[in-house]
Nucleic acid binder design. Structure first.
Lengths: 164, 164
DNA sequence: GCCCGCTGCTTGCAATTGCAAACGCGGCGG
DNA sequence: CCGCCGCGTTTGCAATTGCAAGCAGCGGGC
């Protein structure tokens, strides 16, 4: 009866933590919660309160809202989320970088359309280190990344620095 | 205001309820919580959990986020970077993609000197004057990109940015 | 071999949430 | 007068949160 179906939130937190490559205790300390409790949260044995959730979000350096949505605590939320616009207006990166970011983002959008409805259900069960279902980036995008990923062989891509 | 006046959440709820001209019991029923508990919440005697808060928000027909902000559970919006915020809140990409995008962006930020600060009102961004001295991405970032760069068949970098 | 530190997990226990039941208050009809 | 309805509040109690303490496993230094 009292079996909370919070399952996905714990997995999500664990994924984020492992992605950040920090230990359970480290995140617990950063979030200001106890280690065992975080362990229980991650395995879905406990349902963290909003405060704890907020602390964990801070410890993970992720948006509280995202975590709340994952926990199914926020349902509405439709932020403009205009990543493209934000990238375009960002003065802190170069034109080149801007274009690469936009290309990558658009590529992501194409390959992973998020099934339209991001309900309270988890987005994807496991983000293992072996994403078999992830599609590779288009070649031209990789080419755009090459100047950054250079030094690992293959030589520099023809970087036509058209901006200037 | 590092001290979140949690007490105000109750007042806020009560204000909203009275503004809607519904009784405490009515709201309690609409929100699916017990009347006495709602009473205690409104007077700050109890600290409602996220679920209850969400239910109350529904019963009040107001945004959950607004209520969460009132409760001090969500930082209103402290965007260190609009791009990061936009990426974090974008529901259209997977967590993995999100992380990769953020990593790439941060890497760009590091290598590209940001003289303009965070002002989005920049007149003329320094558009990559010297792309030749761009630094490669950090190893862990390349590792993150690897699954996407799977078929790196050394394609010719004829990347024509389709953005117009 | 032994101890240390690290990883995460399990176990009692205080504090809290959240609710059912009951309370005082004011108005309305018999 | 008394019952009955609504309002918000108070009171006990089960269930839960969240933590301190302790456990087993693993790798490294002496």
């Amino acid at each position: 009866m009292a079996l909370p179906k919070v399952g996905s939130i714990g997995e999500y937190i664990r994924e984020q933590r492992q992605q950040a490559k920090i230990s359970l205790r480290q995140l617990a300390a950063a979030a200001g919660v106890s280690n065992p409790y975080l362990s229980q949260i991650e395995r879905g044995l406990r349902k963290p309160s909003a405060e704890i959730l907020n602390q964990i979000a801070k410890g993970l350096r992720i948006s509280s809202q995202v975590l709340y949505v994952q926990a199914g605590l926020i349902e509405d939320h439709e932020p403009p989320s205009d990543v493209i616009t934000a990238i375009r207006e960002d003065p802190n990166i170069t034109e080149r970088q801007r274009q690469v970011l936009i290309d990558i983002y658009e590529s992501f959008r194409k390959e992973g359309p998020a099934e339209g409805g991001q309900t309270s259900q988890n987005a994807h069960p496991r983000t293992a280190s072996a994403p078999d279902d992830e599609q590779p980036l288009p070649p031209e995008l990789l080419a755009a990344l090459e100047p950054y990923a250079a030094r690992n062989g293959g030589g520099p891509a023809s970087q036509e620095t058209k901006e200037g």
